[in-house]
């Protein structure tokens, strides 16, 4: 699978990262290189192998009790926001 600039643009769009023409060019060859190297995994026969998504193998799930003991600190929630007003986060207008 060759990585071309069209694919890079699509991935950048999904990642919400804008790229310049030259960045697209560079990334195309870099990603192509890296993914070609990754390709060696396909040599391996993984038929019938169960994937492992985490190395944590303790069996029982830990649950939280249904209690309210968090929240109520609006100032802390918005204190790092680049733009806020009256305790709201502000973002450029979203239209549906």
């Amino acid at each position: 699978m060759a990585i071309d600039s069209k694919l890079v643009e699509r991935i950048a769009k999904l990642s919400r990262i804008s790229l310049t023409e030259s960045e697209i060019k560079n990334l195309s060859s870099e990603l192509d290189n890296i993914l070609n190297w990754i390709e060696q995994l396909s040599e391996l026969d993984t038929e019938g192998i169960n994937p492992v998504f985490s190395s944590f193998d303790e069996e029982e799930t830990k649950y939280r009790n249904d209690e309210i003991n968090d929240g109520g600190y609006r100032e802390d929630i918005i204190s790092n926001a680049p733009l806020s007003e009256d305790g709201f986060f502000l973002v450029p207008k979203v239209v549906d």
């Binding site: 694919l7 890079v8 991935i11 950048a12 999904l14 990642s15 990262i17 990334l27 870099e30 990603l31 890296i34 993914l35 990754i38 995994l41 396909s42 391996l44 993984t46 192998i49 169960n50 994937p51 492992v52 998504f53």
Partner: peptide, 30 residues
């Protein structure tokens, strides 16, 4: 960081998930 976000987005994207991400998790199991 951008490079890795791009790789990560690609290997999870529709049509590539099985070939890359799922495959990798199987290799991880091995």
């Amino acid at each position: 960081v951008k490079r890795r976000i791009m790789i990560g987005t690609y290997v999870l994207s529709s049509g590539y998930y099985d070939a890359y991400y799922l495959k990798a998790q199987k290799v991880r199991a091995m």
